[in-house]
Computed example of a mutant assay.
Amino acid sequence: MSQAIRYDRHGGPEVLTLDDVPLPEPGPGQVRVAVRAAGVNGIDWKLRYGFMDRGRLSAGPAGVGVEFAGTIDAIGAGAGAGTPAGSAAGQGGRSVGRAVFGKVLSGAAATHVVVGTEHLLDMPAWLSFEQAAALPVAVETAWRTLRELDVKEGHTLLVHAVAGGVGLVAAQLARTRGVRVVGTASPARHDFLRELGVRPVEYGDGGDGLAERVRAAAPEGVDAVLDASGRDVLAVSVELAGGPDRVVTIADGRAAEYGVRFSTGGAGGVPLAEVFAEVLPLLERGALRVPIDTTFPLRRTADAHRLSEKGHVLGKIVITVP
């Protein structure tokens, strides 16, 4: 038997239940992972509320969570083939007992998850399960959006919600590439952000002097904007960047109204092996940090969602699985 956090109707965190479910069996090209930790992301509670349902509940209760870390405990037909990759970002995690991390469409907040081996990476020994589970979504999203914005050495990047998981990774990746970074965040996070080389600016929307604060922090001007907040900042972002083609949002569903690109993983996501080939060495030597704000046990996933919905989290929220 396995356990999974699920919901059978849309609503607040109270709709989440910890259910006993049949132990999932891996199919061809898949492995089953005994989950040790799962990351929490905004997409989790947005799906739960029904903002992006797309018929998810038509076939019964839906799981939550899209990123995880754990150990392989069963292998489907063909999934054990091939030579384990030797690199730190190798996709060779195909033997029972191997520590791995990766992504699924849903259901990571559970004791077990079934996943295709192409969505797995070997977990380096210097990472904990909690740290590894916090990485896939934030790192892939940050890496992808920086590529879409085409920021280069000498550019200035504005990141809204820079203290969150995606914002922190994007800011630090950009800094390693010689990009100046300005970021909006609550004042309590400003000292930490300065340590990372980010110029912090207090949160706000377009009508409360945000543009003036950003211009004061970046007198050289802004070349590109990543909106990870969804706090009604697209109009001011377009103004600051000089056009909608220099703005990407991952959080504001009204992007089309402003001519701004809404970036999502889905079919357009970048393979994790490609992303982590650059990122894992940065993490190992401490050039990139993804702090864990709070951890919750699996049975308290609803509390993890409540905290995520409030915002102002430094880094990531992680669910631990006994």
Rank of each mutant, 00 (worst) to 15 (best):
A109D: 14
A99P: 13
D122A: 15
D150R: 13
E118T: 07
V139P: 04
A132W: 02
V104G: 03
L135E: 05
L127V: 11
Q131N: 08
A142D: 02
V169Q: 04
A125I: 13
A171K: 03
A133Q: 04
D122M: 14
A174E: 10
T176Q: 14
E153V: 13
T111H: 11
S95V: 14
T117S: 02
P136I: 03
L146E: 01
H160L: 08
P124R: 04
L168G: 09
R98G: 14
A133N: 01
T111L: 10
L105A: 15
V115R: 04
P136L: 09
A110H: 05
L127Q: 07
V169N: 03
T141G: 07
Q172M: 06
R147N: 14
T145M: 10
D122C: 15
G116S: 09
R175P: 05
A99I: 11
A108S: 10
A142W: 01
Q172T: 06
G165Y: 00
H112Q: 07
G164R: 01
V114K: 01
Q172L: 04
H119F: 11
V151P: 00
V166R: 06
A125Q: 15
G116M: 08
A109M: 15
V114D: 04
G154T: 09
T111Q: 13
L135C: 07
K152W: 12
T176L: 11
V159Q: 00
L121T: 01
S95M: 13
V96G: 09
G167R: 03
A138I: 03
E118Y: 07
V114S: 08
L135T: 08
A134D: 09
Q131L: 10
E118R: 10
R175N: 11
E130W: 07
Q91K: 13
R147D: 15
L173E: 04
L173K: 03
L127D: 02
V166N: 00
R144L: 13
V159G: 01
L168M: 12
L105G: 15
A110P: 06
A132G: 08
A138R: 10
A133H: 03
T156N: 10
F129Y: 11
P124H: 09
E130V: 12
